[in-house]
Design a protein around this nucleic acid. Structure first.
Length: 262
DNA sequence: ATGTCACGCTCCGCGTGA
């Protein structure tokens, strides 16, 4: 069975219902994982998505912040949600396809501005969240699984516009990269995007604050697609839909795609 | 380094989070 999957931090699914529909119509992934829905589950505009063939959804939501949803043309069943670091936030949901593949959709905490847990509680929460992800995957040993989402970390030097200038900026500090790598190793996860696109600068997020995000191109690769090593070789055709960052009233993130032949 | 967004709440701006 072959399928295509996309992950997109939408920064309000209600405000950008039209952009979600545009993506579904023009790109037609079988599965779309959304983060930062900023909506209770019952207020997600599912009808428009259903009309486009996305008749299945699993989601976790809360008012105003966070929130994750998996929209699918293929039948899915929910297989749980975790509240790592006990934040009381809707940052993860998991679904299973009929072929037995599990899809984890994550929105890892951003971590605040100061990369020091002694003075910034949010940074500590981000590190703790990643540590609990690591411990969970160490205990679970996931198989036939895909993990996507806004992980709020750009791990590689070529995942940011300036490695040197971002070393002390939250999202690219060595301690965050270490924590992310530990979670990755614990679940035997493979970075599918970088398996497909091993070389060169690659971003999925550009700040709203830039005068001209496209010209400045000061991006970061915060959005990821991983797969467990047993299915990673089935992945192909990874890409970032950079054009979506230029759509009208856009999200500050662009969708990231991968396809699997299983 | 603090430029832009989106949210909820209480009002029609402000604080918070990113």
């Amino acid at each position: 069975m072959a399928f295509t999957l996309a992950t997109w931090n939408i920064n309000s699914v209600r405000l950008r219902e039209g952009l979600v529909c545009k993506l579904l119509q023009e790109e037609a992934p079988d599965v779309l994982c959304l983060q930062e829905c900023k909506s209770p589950v019952e207020k997600i505009p599912t009808e428009a998505f259903r009309d486009l063939g996305y008749t299945h959804m699993v989601a976790r939501g809360q008012k105003g912040y966070n929130g994750v949803a998996i929209l699918s043309k293929l039948p899915i069943t929910e297989v749980g949600a975790h509240d790592f670091a006990d934040l009381g936030h809707a940052r993860h949901v998991a679904a299973q396809l009929e072929n037995g593949v599990t899809i984890h959709n994550f929105y890892v905490p951003a971590g605040g501005d100061v990369p020091d847990r002694a003075v910034n509680e949010k940074f500590g929460q981000k590190l703790d969240y990643l540590t609990q992800m690591r411990d969970h995957f160490h205990a679970e040993s996931p198989k036939k699984a895909i993990l996507v989402g806004d992980l709020n970390i750009a791990p590689r030097e070529d995942d940011v516009w300036s490695h040197k200038q971002l070393l002390k900026i939250v999202s690219h500090t060595p301690i965050e990269v270490e924590h992310l790598s530990a979670a990755m190793d614990a679940g035997d996860w493979v970075d599918v995007t970088r398996q497909d696109i091993p070389e060169g600068l690659l971003y999925s997020w550009w700040s709203y604050r830039a005068r001209d995000w496209d010209a400045a191109d000061k991006g970061r690769r915060l959005d990821h697609v991983w797969a467990t090593s047993d299915i990673a070789a089935a992945a192909h055709s990874s890409r970032v839909l950079r054009a979506a960052r230029g759509w009208e009233q856009p999200s500050d993130h662009a969708p990231v795609f991968a396809s699997f032949d299983l």
